[in-house]
C-alpha cells in the first residue's frame, strides 16, 4: 500500500474528472449540452463535492460557473421587485441591508444554512438547483411567490419557483439549461413572513422539518388577505399546505383558526421516516412549527 493509498483510505478524496471553465452563461449552456448527463455544474460546490467524496455521484466533467461575471448581484426596484443573481453567496443575502429590511424571511433563511464558511462560498442558485426536500432557500421564496429565470441554448424563460422542483435532488432544468436569476415581487406593506426549522439556527445540520409562512393582512391588520404556508423536508419536494392556507385565508385572525391551520398542515405533510426523524415525529413538528410560525408571521407585519 502506497502512501497515497493510505491517504485515500482515511479521507475520501475527490474522484477524477475533467474540469471545464465556463466564462459566460452561453458557454456553460453549450458545454452542458455537449456533455449531457456526464457533466455537472459547480458553483459553490459545497454540496456537490461532498456527494462526490461519498461517491454518490461521479461526473466525468465538472463545469465551473463560479467565475462567470455578472451573475452575482442583488438589485431592488420598487416596481420590479428584488432580483438576485444565481451566483450570489448566501452570506451576501443574509447581510444585505435591503433584503433584511424588505424581505427579512429570505435573509433569515440564508442565515440558517450551514456555517459561516459555507455561506461565504455557497450560492443561492446552488441551494435551489440541488433541490433537496429540505432546501432552506426554497421555502421563503415559494412563500413570497418568487420566480426563477432559466437560460439555455434556446433562450430564456421565467416561471414560478414552485414549479422548479420535481423530486428529491431533481429540478426541471433540461440538458443545456442553467438557473441564472431569482426574482421576488414587491410585497405589500402589510405582508409579513417567518421561517423556522428544526434543528434550530444554532445547528449546522440539515432540516428535519422546515416551515415558512407568508401572510398579507388588511390595513387594520386583522383579516388575512393572502396566506402561503410552505413545508420543507416532509415531502419529496418543498410543498405548500394548501388546505391549511385556505383555513386562514380571508378570515379574521383568531386563536382557533391558527390551531386548526397548524393541525391541517400536519395532516397534509407526507414525510418519510429516516435517520433524522420518524414520519410521525415530523408530522407533529409540522403542527408545532406551523402554529409558531403563523404567529411570528402575523407579528412581523406590524
Amino acid at each position: 500500500m502506497t502512501e497515497a493509498d493510505i491517504h485515500s483510505t482515511y479521507y475520501s478524496n475527490l474522484p477524477k474528472f475533467e474540469y471545464l471553465e465556463a466564462r459566460t452563461v452561453g458557454e456553460a449552456c453549450s458545454l452542458l449540452k455537449k456533455y449531457g448527463d456526464r457533466a455537472k455544474i459547480i458553483a459553490g460546490g459545497t454540496d456537490l463535492l461532498v456527494s462526490m467524496k461519498k461517491r454518490n455521484i461521479t461526473p466525468w466533467y465538472i463545469i465551473n460557473i463560479k467565475n462567470i461575471p455578472d451573475l452575482e448581484y442583488i438589485q431592488y426596484d420598487n416596481e420590479k421587485g428584488l432580483k438576485i443573481g444565481a451566483l450570489t453567496a448566501l452570506e451576501s443575502i443574509e447581510s444585505s441591508p435591503m433584503i433584511r429590511e424588505r424581505f427579512f424571511i429570505v435573509a433569515d433563511a440564508a442565515h440558517q444554512i450551514g456555517s459561516p464558511q459555507i455561506r461565504n462560498w455557497a450560492t443561492i442558485g446552488g441551494n435551489l438547483c440541488n433541490a433537496a426536500p429540505s432546501a432552506d432557500m426554497a421555502l421563503p421564496l415559494i412563500g413570497l411567490g418568487a420566480m426563477v429565470k432559466i437560460e439555455g441554448i434556446n433562450g430564456e424563460k421565467v416561471f414560478p419557483i414552485e414549479q422548479f422542483f420535481i423530486g428529491p435532488g431533481i429540478n426541471v432544468l433540461e440538458t443545456g439549461e442553467i438557473l441564472t436569476e431569482i426574482q421576488v415581487p414587491t410585497s405589500s406593506l402589510h405582508t409579513g413572513g417567518a421561517y423556522l426549522k428544526l434543528p434550530s439556527r444554532t445547528s449546522i445540520d440539515i432540516a428535519v422539518v422546515g416551515v415558512a409562512v407568508v401572510l398579507t393582512l388588511n390595513s387594520e391588520h386583522r383579516r388575512v388577505l393572502d396566506a402561503r404556508i410552505v413545508l420543507g423536508a416532509v415531502a419529496p419536494i418543498p410543498m405548500r399546505a394548501h388546505k391549511a392556507e385556505n383555513i386562514i385565508k380571508g378570515k379574521v385572525i383568531e386563536e382557533q383558526l391558527i390551531v386548526r391551520a397548524a393541525q391541517t398542515a400536519a395532516e397534509e405533510a407526507r414525510p418519510i421516516s429516516d435517520i433524522r426523524g420518524s414520519a410521525k415525529y415530523r408530522k407533529e413538528m409540522v403542527r408545532v412549527l406551523t402554529n409558531l410560525v403563523i404567529r411570528q408571521a402575523i407579528g412581523s407585519t406590524s
Binding site: I42, G44, V50, E91, P116, N120, W121
Partner: peptide, 9 residues
C-alpha cells in the same frame, strides 16, 4: 472571506 478549503476546488 473565511471558507472551508476542503470544499473548494
Amino acid at each position: 472571506k473565511a471558507v472551508k478549503s476542503c470544499l473548494v476546488l
